[in-house]
Amino acid sequence: MSTASKTRTLSDEELDRVAQQFRLLGEPMRLRILQTICKKPLTVNEIVEATGATQSNISKHLSLLASSGIIRREKNAQFVYYSLRDPMTMKLCELVHGKVSEKD
């Protein structure tokens, strides 16, 4: 049975929100950040060390990801920890990777 028959039609507003999420996930550094924080919450400095990017670059991407709701910020004493809000985000990345790998 086709999955198309089970899929409901999205409104223009819903399609815009979905497209925005894909645009956010379309940046390799953001995916690298998500991959870095998917196992445990990390601070900006830990993310910088793990990715090799600059602190200002990481901060910019973290701000975008947090404001979109993809990641969360949690303050603990003087540190702010970043983590995935929903593990389904990484599952989506794995699904896309699986399809891309099939074409190789």
Rank of each mutant, 00 (worst) to 15 (best):
M1F: 02
M1T: 05
S2N: 04
A4C: 01
S5F: 07
S5A: 07
S5T: 07
K6S: 03
K6A: 04
K6I: 04
K6E: 08
R8S: 02
R8L: 03
T9I: 04
S11W: 01
E13N: 03
E13H: 05
E14Y: 00
E14L: 02
D16G: 01
D16C: 01
R17L: 08
Q21N: 06
Q21P: 02
F22I: 09
F22N: 04
F22H: 05
R23I: 06
R23F: 04
L24G: 00
L24K: 02
L25W: 10
G26M: 04
G26A: 08
G26N: 08
E27N: 12
E27I: 13
E27D: 13
P28W: 02
R30I: 03
R30M: 05
R30Y: 02
I33R: 00
I33N: 01
Q35F: 00
Q35A: 00
I37V: 05
C38I: 09
P41W: 06
P41G: 11
L42I: 02
L42P: 00
T43P: 07
T43A: 03
T43N: 09
V44F: 01
N45C: 07
N45E: 12
N45D: 13
E46P: 02
V48W: 05
E49R: 10
A50H: 05
T51G: 00
G52V: 10
G52M: 04
G52I: 08
A53G: 07
T54R: 14
Q55N: 11
N57C: 11
N57G: 12
I58K: 03
I58E: 06
I58C: 05
K60I: 13
K60D: 15
K60Y: 15
H61T: 12
H61S: 14
L62K: 09
S63D: 15
S63V: 11
S63H: 13
L64F: 13
L65I: 08
A66Q: 14
S68W: 11
S68V: 09
S68A: 15
G69C: 06
I71P: 06
I71T: 03
R72S: 10
K75L: 14
N76T: 14
A77Y: 11
A77N: 15
Q78C: 06
Q78P: 05
V80I: 15
Y81P: 09
Y81R: 06
Y81A: 03
Y81Q: 07
Y82Q: 11
S83L: 06
R85L: 09
D86F: 05
D86T: 04
D86G: 04
M88V: 09
M88R: 07
M88Q: 10
M90D: 03
K91M: 13
K91A: 09
L95N: 14
V96P: 04
G98Y: 09
K99G: 10
K99T: 14
S101R: 09
E102H: 04
E102M: 14
E102A: 10
E102T: 09
K103L: 14
D104I: 13
D104C: 07
